[in-house]
């Protein structure tokens, strides 16, 4: 097995074995959320690093995955893991639809289109809320929420953290697999020049849609995991502005490696919780994010992960 795979697997093993032992029950929940959003951020990174495309609607897509998962949880007896997969695939389709404008647009215009999509989902989530065991298609009940099933190996919060970490790692693995095989090579060529890619026989439309679908798949899985973690989803967590924030953090963390996605998840969920814990306002996080974004734009185009990995590589072994 090449070294490039040993390190992440070792880190995963340590995370799965050690983290649950050292974290208090509150922090187990926070770290679970951070891992879930790291997975979502990985989808943003795929589009940004591989194709230079900006997707501000990832939080909305996570909401879509969460909605599908809750809906299936209450409407069917399917096991949780199956629900996670279905939510992922369904959201991949939504992501692919989002790709349609991307076929003609880039840069700022595409960013605006995804932002508008995120806004539309924000309105939908607000209007219909998330299923909580009620009647009818939308499944919203006035009384308190019914239970959401978790997988048998992950009934406890600690078990669920482990489950989440393993799925997150599998998601990262899927992205890595794409990067080193056909789609990654095709994306690299498209990024260089669409004309050059077409001249080589690459179906540019197909591979762009595929990238968005992959990004949607990761968002959908993240959304399903989130529903299992929280038991209930709140429309207020899926504002369009959150999509901008997660995108910014994916860039700050570093879009070119899974380390960056983890940093993004940690910044998004862990940092505000830490500030809270220290008695500081969680809004302070926004100021820190802004500074970090400026830092990334000006001095670290490959993000914090790029700087960390660069430092590790430079260190003589």
């Amino acid at each position: 097995m090449p070294r490039s795979q040993i390190t992440p697997l070792a880190i995963l093993l340590i995370g799965v074995l050690i983290l649950p032992l050292i974290l208090s029950s509150l922090w187990v929940k926070v770290v679970t959320s951070a891992a879930i959003f790291a997975l979502g951020a990985a989808g943003i990174s795929v589009l940004f690093a591989q194709l230079g495309l900006i997707n501000l609607a990832q939080i909305a897509l996570i909401g879509v995955g969460g909605w599908v998962a809750l809906r299936l949880n209450y409407a069917t007896p399917l096991p949780f893991t199956v629900i996670v997969v279905i939510a992922g695939v369904a959201t991949a389709f939504v992501g692919a639809i989002l790709a349609l404008p991307a076929l003609r647009m880039r840069g700022l215009y595409l960013a605006l289109v995804t932002l508008m999509a995120a806004g539309a989902f924000q309105i939908l989530f607000n209007a219909f809320q998330f299923p909580n065991g009620g009647e009818g298609f939308w499944g919203v009940a006035r009384q308190s929420a019914a239970d959401i099933r978790r997988p048998s190996v992950a009934q406890s919060d600690v078990g669920y953290l482990r489950y989440t970490l393993v799925i997150m790692a599998a998601g990262f693995g899927l992205v890595a697999l794409h990067r080193i095989t056909g789609p990654g090579r095709a994306w690299a060529m498209i990024r260089q020049s669409e004309a050059n890619a077409m001249a080589a026989g690459i179906n540019v439309t197909f591979y762009k849609i595929w990238a968005f679908a992959l990004s949607g798949l990761l968002a959908g899985i993240a959304g399903a995991l989130l529903s299992g973690a929280l038991g209930q989803l709140d429309a207020r967590s899926f504002l369009a502005s959150e999509g901008i924030l997660l995108f910014a953090l994916a860039v700050v963390g570093g879009a070119y490696s899974w380390v960056g996605a983890i940093i993004a998840g940690v910044l998004y969920k862990l940092l505000p919780a830490l500030l809270n814990d220290w008695g500081l306002s969680a809004d302070l996080a926004l100021i820190l994010f802004g500074a970090a974004l400026l830092h990334a734009i000006m001095t670290a185009p490959r993000g914090i992960a790029g700087q960390l990995l660069g430092a590790l590589q430079r260190k003589p072994s």
Binding site: R185, A186, M189, R191, Q192, N196, G201, I202, N203
Partner: peptide, 23 residues
Amino acid sequence: FQKVQVVDDITVADHLRTVLTAN
């Protein structure tokens, strides 16, 4: 192309593989 279109971050073999797969 008039301006060479070699992609920086993939290898020569990967350039060729891309064409082989696409075709």
